[in-house]
């Protein structure tokens, strides 16, 4: 398989499979990190000071160190220190380790955005609800939640677009995502070797996916423009 025309379908097929893994990591991270981030944001506002300090310390460490190092530690630490590689060495194990590292990392970033979003709503909104006899739950869900979503949507969108690109870090523990799939054709795979264009071509996948997300998130922001 020497000609580009011969190689192209083979490469695309492999990249598609890799990108599916990328997508899976992306969505699993979001589904895990958004709710966990909300819980962490409540912890970081806790009236119980030791809990608040502990949560803020964890957030500081997680945000102050590279995600790649966190991923390496979570993946290799159990095996090196306890001689027990809890993750196993197959693709599923690598995926679970990666997902856990990503969820922890992103939930800390999200929690700071949520905290700002909740704090930014004027107390007058709470008080207006209270004097009208609403319960605290009604005030949160019927009055504050939508205002909070509107406030946090732009910074959350930024994080989401960053997450798309960050998924490539999983390459470091050989998770078979799209970069890994592209790189395979340098070393040799399915009769193609010494080719670097498949690796560069993966950039198109990120671009297209980020483009789609940008449009969707922009539409959402537009939808919330009806109030100020």
């Amino acid at each position: 398989m020497d000609t580009f025309v011969e190689q192209f379908p083979v490469v695309i097929n492999a990249l598609n499979i890799g990108f599916l893994q990328t997508l899976k990591l992306f969505f699993v991270t979001l589904i895990g990190a958004l709710p966990l981030g909300l819980i962490i944001s409540f912890g970081s506002k806790s009236k119980f000071v030791p809990l608040k300090l502990l949560v803020r310390f964890i957030i500081w460490v997680v945000r102050g160190t590279p995600l790649m190092i966190q991923l390496l530690i979570i993946y290799y630490f159990p095996g090196l220190v306890f001689h027990n590689n809890v993750w196993g060495s197959n693709e599923t194990g690598r995926f679970i380790a990666t997902a856990i590292a990503f969820i922890i990392n992103y939930s800390c970033y999200f929690s700071e955005i949520f905290r700002g979003g909740i704090n930014g709503i004027p107390v007058g909104q709470d008080e207006a609800g209270l004097v009208l006899g609403m319960t605290k739950k009604e005030i949160f869900f019927k009055v504050k939640l939508l205002q909070m979503i509107k406030r946090i949507l732009p910074p959350i969108s930024n994080e989401i677009l960053t997450l798309v690109k960050d998924t490539s870090l999983a390459r470091i523990i050989a998770l078979q995502e799209v970069i890994w799939a592209g790189q395979a054709f340098m070393k040799g795979s399915q009769g193609i070797s010494g080719e670097i264009w498949p690796l560069f071509f993966t950039a198109i996948y990120y671009l297209i996916f980020n483009g789609i997300l940008t449009v969707i998130l922009g539409k959402l922001e537009q939808k919330l423009e009806y109030f100020k």
Binding site: A128, L146, Q147
Partner: peptide, 13 residues
């Protein structure tokens, strides 16, 4: 009691 605030505190949405 009802209370009308100086700064209205209407629900913007």
């Amino acid at each position: 009691f009802g209370l009308v605030f100086q700064s209205f505190n209407l629900f913007p949405q």
